[in-house]
Structures are given as C-alpha cells and as structure tokens.
Amino acid sequence: MLEITALHASVGGKDILRGIDLTVNAGEVHAIMGPNGSGKSTLAGLLAGRAEYTVTSGTVRYQGKDLLTMAPEDRARNGVFLAFQYPVEIPGVNNAYLLKAALNEVRKHRGEPELDAMEFMALVKKQLEVLEISPDLLNRPVNDGFSGGEKKRNEIFQMAVLEPKLAILDETDSGLDIDALQIVAKGVNALRRPERSTVVITHYQRMLNYIVPDFVHVLAEGRIVKSGGKALALELEAKGYGWIDGAAAEMGA
C-alpha cells in the first residue's frame, strides 16, 4: 500500500524529515507518536501533497506508483485522505457543496456515475447519524466558526463519505471530548477493511484503546527512532519520550 524509503525533506532550507523508512500494508493500522515539532504533520502533509516541502532524497510509493510526482488532487482521487490537524476555515464555500464535489471527483475517477443532490443527501444522512453530527453543520461554510471538536468530527465525516484507501489522521483526537473520541473511533473502525489502511498520528495512548494499532512508531527529530506493537504506546504513556531520545542519540552516533 505505502512504502516510504529513506525519505529526507526540508522546508525553507531547514531539514525536517531526516531519513524515514515506513511500510504500511493493506489492512494495517499504524500509529505515529512523537514529541512536538518532530515532523509528524510534515510527513502527513507531504504524503497528501502539500507543496511547501522539498523532498531532498528518498522515495514514496503508493499502490506501486510514485506518490511524490502526483498532484494532491490525484492522490485524493486515488484514495489518499488526510484528516488535518488544523482543518482550514473556508468562508463562502458550503460544507455540503464541497463534500459533494469531492465525492463526485472520486467517483468520476473510479468510473462510477456522479451522484445528484438527492442521492448525495441520502448517503450523507447515514454518516451524519453514525458520527452524531448535526445536519446544521452541512449547510454552513466549511469549518467556518466550527468548534475545535466539530472541525475534527467534520474531517472524519468527510473521510466516511469519501471512503479512502489510505487514511492519515493527524491528531484527530486532540480537542475531542471523551464521548466524541469514541464516536470518531467508531467511525474510523467502521471503515476498516482488509484493503484499507490507516495511519493515526496522536499524542495520547487513549485514542489507541479505541483504534487499536498493529504497529506503533516513534518519530523524533525527523526519524523513526523506535517501532513496536501496541504495547509501545503504553510504555510511552508511562515513561515519556526521554528514554527514547537517549536511544536516538545513540543511533545517531
């Protein structure tokens, strides 16, 4: 599904990713944890196609193709979905209008007929109920004036409607109350299929109680310094990153 090899990337001349190797197979859930500023969102944004990053070396293959040469919209149409850490407010663009446009772009790409307004609403209604989202949010401008939690729920709602193959959730749990966390996890789990993969970026082990990862990775200073099973998340919760930082220094030496 996703194969990242020796990836180095910089922003404005500053090296942020400094040799990432990561393979995500179909059906797997990977969690990425790591201190603030370690490069998690950079990696997520780079995979989704954010233009401001320069890849200095390394490769990323997605479904056997070179992901890095694809335009962001082509990545999305091919099933890459990024749930943003900070969803952008877009006044003047209606939430439902955007989602319908997005869904029809994906459907067109898959060779499926586009949905009209009625069919779209029928499909969307189901997901609104699952995620307990007020239909009112649909008719507002994208994320405009949404509360922090509403923005995160809206990201997962979009994901549920678009049914991506590779979902990257960048701190979707931050800002969610406990009930919302469970609802969002339910939404993510409902999408789990043998052919779909999920990358969950989080600071908190709690999220991983609901979305149980197959692998946990620690990203520090632009490298994956430790990988393990779900137990690693518990260990990090108990001990922090200090002991791994030491390991990183050893590795770098």
Binding site: E73, R75, A76, L82, F84, P87, I90, L98, E105
Partner: peptide, 11 residues
Amino acid sequence: MLFYLQARGLG
C-alpha cells in the same frame, strides 16, 4: 485553503 480543497480531490 487551496491545498485543503485539492486534498479533497478538487483540481
């Protein structure tokens, strides 16, 4: 904003 829309599949 442009990136957000592109990341949702819009050209």
